[in-house]
Amino acid sequence: MSSTLSAAPTARYTWRVVDIVVASVIAVASGVIFWAWNTTHHAFDFIFVAFPPSSALLAGMWLFPAVLGALIIRKPGAALFCEMVAAVVSSLLGSEYGWTVWASGIIQGLGAEIVFAVLLYRRWSLPVALFAGLLTGIFGGVNDAFVFSWFPDYTESMKLAYVVFMAISGLVIAGLGSWALTRALSRTGALSSMASRKAAQERVLG
């Protein structure tokens, strides 16, 4: 029935109960941060009024659970799972994008997941985190601008600008931000039962 995991080589890729629950709670806590952020960031919407596609510069806030989850849990599917649960939480709280936020969650999560998968879930350094943040931003931007096409009347170059802004935001907020947060968390000892418990002592460039 329930078998404890042995320290066999497959352990690297198998999820323990604690991995599942911590990943879920990271996503839920991200939902709380989204909600707090929602009440802050609308106050700054005026900054982007002159060139609306630049509002994507803040979109990285919605992408960080993917990279953060993967950097902390270090298991296949962690980026995808965290971004999806965060999307479900935000839809239950009342999302701006209705059910499509579930689909967006999957697409954005995939962006980060691909980077970690290509490296066989062995590399968690700063460049990897930045790249994962960048790709999740590109996936999210393309999804918003071209797939669900939320701004059909934007010119092609404005849609591209939107994608570029979201990529930058993903790189900085989701990539750099999650990497820094993981190291700060590892210093507090909160990650003691996670594969990332020694993240703060790892080499920055891997």
């Binding site: 029935m1 329930s2 078998s3 323990r16 109960v17 604690v18 599942i20 629950v21 911590v22 879920s24 709670v25 990271i26 839920v28 806590a29 709380v32 941060i33 707090a36 902390i72 947060l181 700060a184 968390l185 507090t188 909160a190 990650l191 003691s192 039962s193 996670m194």
Partner: peptide
Amino acid sequence: QSLGLMVQAIRRASRLAVTMEAKGFGGT
């Protein structure tokens, strides 16, 4: 504040995981 929240969230999650596992959760 987000760091503070994440620390508390992960600590609680780790305890919750112990509770769930002790209640036999995790089997197929």
